[in-house]
Amino acid sequence: MKKNKSLLLSGPYIAWMVIFTLIPLCVVLFYALTDVDTGAFSFGNIENLVLYLPAFWRSILYSVVSALICLVIGYPVAYYMAHCRPTAQRFLYMLVMLPMCMSFLLRTLAWVGLLQDTGIINNFLEMLGLPRLSLIRTPGAVILGMVYNYLPYMILPLYAIIVKIDNRLIEAAEDLGCNSIQVFARVVLPLSMPGILSGVTMVFVPAVSTFYISNKLGSTDIVLIGDIIERQFKQGDNANMGAALSLLLMVLVFVCTGIMNRFGSDEEGGVLV
């Protein structure tokens, strides 16, 4: 009886999932395995994926680097937040969320305005009599864009986990001979592992498939897989190739999150994907 009721309630979403996720996925699979000209079954697209491997590696490299930078920046912030007074916690939480309320496109375009050769930063440098820097169209600019955009996705899950760590466990560790560094290494860090894993996942997954950031902040030779997929659909008119690329990207994301979940398999509670 109870089971039937919950099925009834979750029915609409399940239907939605089937219609708008599962079926489209099958369509993607179908496109990926058919030839662009003849429409016949073919492994041609899959074989051609080799051509795009450098872009794949670049995407993974950039998003891994971004995720790590987010972790290094985000962990202390989350830790600090979790140890503030409740009112300060709410304020900081809002502050972290705030950029997410602003349009993603606008945020990225704002960085263009800041970084470009005649942008705000360079104008400021010139005012100080310093030479202009070429900031935009560099790998650094792309990674900066990723870090800026996805940092909240790192801080929030970390904060949620760290704030729940029982202070008595920290006292217990001190009682058993740990100085503050040992307390961190032996208790706080292992206990924040679920937060680290979900934070890294939540930064990595959107970063690896992004196209807009590299498009605006990267140079023409910094092509990420997201850009290529976009081009296949919008300019190249090769939806079949685009489908194959998307499929590979999906597999890659699965593999990466799978590896990370493996890391955390000792910990209780899974990773939020």
Binding site: R168, E171, A172, E174, D175, L176, V187, L191, E268
Partner: peptide, 20 residues
């Protein structure tokens, strides 16, 4: 003297065992 340098150990209320 901080707790970790005292020759004293504690059994905490509700135990405070390390869940990991």
């Amino acid at each position: 003297v901080p707790p970790y340098e005292r020759q004293i150990n504690t059994v905490f209320q509700r135990y405070a065992l390390f869940p990991h």
